[in-house]
Design a protein around this nucleic acid. Structure first.
Length: 835
DNA sequence: ATGCGCCAAGTTTTT
DNA sequence: CTTGGCGCAT
């Protein structure tokens, strides 16, 4: 996946050069910065040939990059330049005369695919090499061969919420009792089965556990539901394609020939379905190259099978294996800590992390009173570092186990005017208005999309109530029809009163009018839809009642997206493509590397990224090994790998923190440090306790900060791989069990320490003021209606409307050119003009 | 049929 | 702390 920091590093070097101040702190970094990675970029742009280009690679990197035919396994540790090698290999293949359309690079996330594309473009611009996620690859294939698996080409992709609705309906039709299980559990079992290529028929004879038995009963009904709706869920995308390839030998052969060179990123995260797909496409042309790192496998819960990578050499005996173990990203301090941790995994290929950089700062382990102090302190540290050092917001990342922890940070950052971006799960496409409108689009595109119909039938309200829907559904189920088909017969449904039937008929008539516009430009379609369905009025009414949310702004945003899509896809700009696009992007993909903001995300989302400064919060028992992962040793190992991934994102500085107490799901309760902390080389780390409010970044106080006595635990308190950590209880007692009264007392008696910094008051230098004034306003609460702002493209304009809060804040700006444009403040590069 | 309000439940990670 | 489901009053 993308080591996407390289572009940033280049930018960083430029910036320090122009300001003329290179803080000593970044010494090691600078040395590396002018090293091969950035140098490379310059050379390519001057158009030097491939020979020179490959000359900048190390021996093993070069071996991988020049590999042409036959299977290739690249075991690449974190920060080893993996993406770089992969892009160079593609460029090298192209230079060797391989037609670009014979190459397909499969990634796990869109983010990784985009990054790879960006970097390939730098080496070999505009090559039609196929790049994208597994799911997108499968979606495309399926679009072409849908009839072979019983679908039509305009099939819909159900997102998790849609799938859940369909599942609930399936549970009802299956008439099973869910008293000892839940739809979620059933969904999980079915999902796991699909990932292992297990069909409903195969599952019948083999289940043992209770919820599996229930799931096995529901599974066929669920699939039937999907087939009838001409829809697939995420897992089906893979499953259908895998079966397609298994059951159609000629097609398999064709596709094998078409995609002769297949590259798979993050191979350790592939599940059986993905494995089957990739293998099927690499039989006649076994030019399969996979890259991955078993230590970074963190998707076991999604069916990822570590054996795929561990056994690759067995699958392809003629494989060339390349190991990239040298880490160019992190300081040795960080690597020792990460290595100390990962060594505790038993099911693992021993691998070294060879440090390349010079010794840096010790890793910090920090204890806080609670999550608020944690967030406040981290925000303060960042503010301080930006003020004192030449750091920028985008150099920092705060990583956590779950999205719920980001709330406190959001507050802390906002109150300090610190620009940030939270990459989390609850975003744009999950909002009600958006889901409603998309449901209309889905239904227009695929009349069988029952979930969309149910969502939309009475939104806005049209006098079609629960009873009517019930009768309609029963009628449809009875005949095996889709709901829309049943609705067309509303007049003939005996159970339906005439009045209800008339309402339903009116809806169908409206639908038919909408469907006529299916091939119009998205923008026109949406605008027509808004009027025709009465959704616009519905929204206006809502907006006046509810001040907080601004559905209208969201709708405008969707419109903006549609316009953009129309523009980018003038030829294939079908509704199909748009809906597929929407279904297969996640909010993680909204992360903008170029934005100068602090990044807040989960460790899962952070994979493949790197940052100069990384804070990992909530390294606590039941949270970082998550409570639900602790029974199963393999899940526990996965949690350890997750922390490993988090730690190895850091280039220069890394802080791990945990709290004495934390409020989670409404409760404020005491928590215990993560047992993983016991596995770190604590003797060489810097420990900070709660009452010590001195700054992380104050160079003068480093000596005092290091190793408080209470932390001077003997290094040999190692964890046996099977048993519980020796001395864990002492450790926890000492650190976490101090009663609050004593804490308060201790705080009161603390002597002379600097007051907590508060931004913007602490930013006092002229340069800072200037920077502040001209800096992107980001998500800071500083925007007001009537304010004059500047946009790089549109010029100056006045804010005429503001809506939404935080990262969702949207501003309508009337530019002096006369144009009025809606922006999402977070993404628009707005600057505030002098007052 | 609608809409409000209460209560309960379930809370990881993502395509 | 949120969401979803259910029952009641209009």
């Amino acid at each position: 996946m993308g080591d996407s920091g390289e572009a940033r590093k280049g930018a960083f070097v430029d910036d320090t050069a122009t300001t003329g101040s290179i803080p000593q702190f970044f010494g090691g970094r600078m040395k590396r910065g002018i090293g091969m990675e950035d140098f490379l970029g310059g050379r390519i742009n001057t158009g030097t040939g491939m020979e020179d280009l490959l000359g900048t690679l190390t021996e093993p990197q070069r071996a991988a990059a020049t590999h042409v035919a036959g299977p290739l396994l690249m075991l690449a540790g974190p920060g080893s330049g993996k993406t770089r090698v992969v892009t160079h290999r593609i460029a090298s293949l192209l230079q060797g005369g391989i037609p670009p359309h014979q190459i397909a690079a499969l990634t796990f996330t869109n983010k990784a695919a985009d990054e790879m594309r960006r970097r390939l473009d730098a080496l070999a611009p505009q090559q039609p090499v196929w790049m994208g996620t597994f799911h997108r690859f499968c979606a495309r294939l399926l679009r072409q061969y849908a009839p072979l698996v019983g679908l039509a080409e305009n099939y819909s992709i159900y997102d998790t919420a849609d799938a859940k609705q369909a599942l609930k309906r399936a549970i009802e039709t299956a008439k099973v009792s869910t008293s000892h299980t839940s739809p979620e559990q059933i969904a999980a079992v079915i999902g796991r089965a699909k990932n292992r290529l297990v069909t409903p028929e195969m599952m019948e004879g083999q289940s043992l556990r209770h919820n599996e038995t229930v799931a096995a009963r529901v599974y066929p009904f669920y699939q039937q539901q999907l087939r009838l709706a001409n829809a697939v869920d995420f897992d089906d995308l893979l499953l259908h394609v895998a079966r397609l390839l298994q059951e159609n030998p000629e097609l398999r052969q064709d596709l094998d020939r078409r995609y002769r060179y297949i590259l798979v990123d993050e191979y350790q995260d592939t599940n059986l379905a993905q494995y089957a797909i990739v293998r099927s496409l690499s039989i006649d042309y076994p030019n399969l190259s996979v890259t991955g790192d078993p230590d970074q496998s963190i998707y076991g819960w999604r069916g990822a099978d570590l054996n795929n990578i561990l056994d690759f050499e067995k699958d392809y005996p003629s494989v060339t294996t390349v190991r990239l173990e040298r880490n160019y990203r992190s300081t040795p301090n960080i690597l020792r800590a990460a290595d100390g941790l990962i060594r505790h995994n038993t099911r693992r290929k021993a691998k070294d992390l060879l440090a390349h950089r010079e010794e840096g700062e010790p890793v910090t382990l920090r204890l806080y009173e609670d999550g608020h102090r944690e967030a406040d302190d981290i925000a303060d540290q960042i503010v301080h570092a930006i003020g004192e050092q030449a750091a920028r917001p985008r150099d920092f990342a705060v990583l956590c186990r779950m999205n719920a922890l980001t709330r406190v940070l959001e507050h802390a950052f906002r109150s300090r005017g610190l620009p940030y971006q939270i990459v989390n799960g609850l975003e744009f496409y999950k909002r009600k208005e958006i889901k409603d409108l998309l449901a209309y689009l889905h239904l227009i595109n695929n009349p069988a999309h029952d979930v969309a119909l149910l969502r939309v039938l009475n939104t806005p309200t049209r006098g079609i109530g629960k009873k009517t829907i019930e009768r309609l559904t029963a009628y449809a189920d009875q005949r095996g029809w889709t709901l829309l088909e049943a609705a067309r017969q509303a007049g003939l449904i005996p159970t339906l009163p005439a009045r209800s039937a008339a309402q339903v008929a009116k809806f169908v008539a409206m639908y038919d009018r909408l469907a006529l516009k299916a091939t119009a430009a998205l923008e026109d379609l949406l605008l027509y839809l808004l009027e025709e369905t009465g959704y616009r009025d519905f929204l206006a009414k809502k907006a006046t009642e509810d001040q907080d949310s601004n559905p209208e702004a969201n709708v405008d945003e969707l419109l903006t997206g549609a316009v953009e899509f129309d523009r980018q896809h003038p030829q294939d700009g079908s509704l199909d493509a748009f809906l597929e696009q929407v279904a297969l992007v996640s909010d993680t993909d909204a992360w903008e590397e170029t934005d100068d903001r602090v990044t807040v995300m989960t460790m899962h989302a952070a994979k493949g990224l790197e940052f100069p400064h990384v804070f990992i919060i909530g390294v606590e028992d039941d949270l970082l090994p998550h409570a639900r992962s602790k029974e199963d040793p393999s899940q526990l190992e996965e949690e350890r790998r997750l922390l490993f991934v988090g730690m190895t994102r850091a280039e220069d500085r890394l802080q791990l923190s945990y709290c004495k107490r934390r409020s989670l799901r409404g409760e404020y309760r005491p928590v215990v440090a993560s047992p993983f902390l016991m596995e770190l080389p604590r003797a060489e780390m810097r420990h900070v306790e709660p009452d010590d409010s001195r700054y992380y970044f104050d160079p003068g106080e480093e000596d005092e900060l290091a190793y408080p006595d209470s932390w001077d635990l003997p290094e040999e308190q190692e964890v046996t791989d099977t048993g519980s950590p020796a001395g864990k209880d002492d450790f926890a007692d000492e650190l976490c069990q101090l009663p609050p009264e004593e804490q308060a007392e201790a705080a009161r008696t603390e002597k002379g320490r600097p007051p907590a910094p508060s931004l913007p008051a602490s930013l006092t230098t002229a340069a800072d003021l200037l920077q502040q004034r001209r800096r992107g306003v980001g998500k800071s609460a500083s925007l007001r209606e009537g304010m004059v702002v500047s946009h790089p493209e549109y010029g100056d304009g006045r804010i005429v409307a503001l809506s939404g809060r935080g990262p969702k804040q949207t501003a309508k700006i009337e530019f002096f050119s006369g144009e009025a444009v809606m922006f999402r403040v977070a993404f628009a590069n707005l600057t505030i003009e002098d007052a």
